[in-house]
């Protein structure tokens, strides 16, 4: 089992529902977020190209945050999901420094916090909160090892990219382009 997310940049309108849904579902403290929308404008005026990306932890296969964690608080569970155990985290910040995506933040309680792919919902057979609320249905969550899953088939059909592949992290959030 390898959980992954695919996000269609052609369908995303950047409404930010995914961000709010996550904040409510996961009780994210005010002023912080586990996912966010990046608007990337590339080109020289007037030839500009806009790309909207809903970004979050990439649940990397080769996760630098898990490698550098001195206590084992950052760990990988079923489906390759990267989680943090708050009671084991000392708040040293090594994982925050190690993340090429800046996906982690220091929770006001002291421990590090990040996207969990809503593993608590996935275990109940539901979709992650961000995916479930997307009004344009541009987000897909599923198992890459299942050849019949929607996400596997989409990634076979569509062109896609991942962020900072040169970091060698083998990220599990794919952007359909």
């Amino acid at each position: 089992m390898r959980y992954a997310m695919a996000i269609d940049t052609k369908k995303c309108v950047g409404c930010g529902d995914c961000v709010v849904a996550c904040q409510i579902e996961n009780n994210v403290p005010t002023g912080y977020c586990r996912d966010w929308v990046t608007e990337s404008v590339v080109g020289t005026y007037p030839q500009l190209e806009l790309e909207l990306r809903s970004e979050r932890c990439n649940h990397c296969e080769n996760a630098p945050c898990v490698r550098c964690c001195p206590t084992g608080a950052s760990h990988i569970v079923e489906g390759g999901v990267v989680l943090v155990t708050p009671e084991m985290c000392i708040g040293c910040g090594a994982c925050i420094e190690s993340c090429p995506y800046d996906a982690r933040y220091s929770h006001p309680d002291g421990h590090v916090d990040k996207c969990t792919f809503c593993i608590h919902r996935v275990r109940e057979g539901k979709q992650p909160a961000c995916v479930s609320v997307c009004p344009t249905k541009c987000m897909y969550f599923g198992d890459l090892d299942d050849p019949n899953s929607e996400i596997t088939q989409l990634l076979e059909k569509r062109k896609w990219k991942v962020l900072a592949p040169e970091a060698g992290t083998k990220p599990h959030v794919y952007y359909l382009i």
């Binding site: 950047g14 930010g16 961000v19 002023g31 912080y32 977020c33 966010w36 929308v37 990046t38 608007e39 990337s40 404008v41 590339v42 080109g43 020289t44 925050i96 800046d102 933040y105 220091s106």
Partner: peptide, 17 residues
């Protein structure tokens, strides 16, 4: 020249910018 502009939709204390 190619210019790239990022407008981040987030502002996490101690991470952004």
């Amino acid at each position: 020249m190619n210019e790239e502009l990022f407008i981040s939709g987030r502002e996490v204390p101690h991470i952004d910018p």
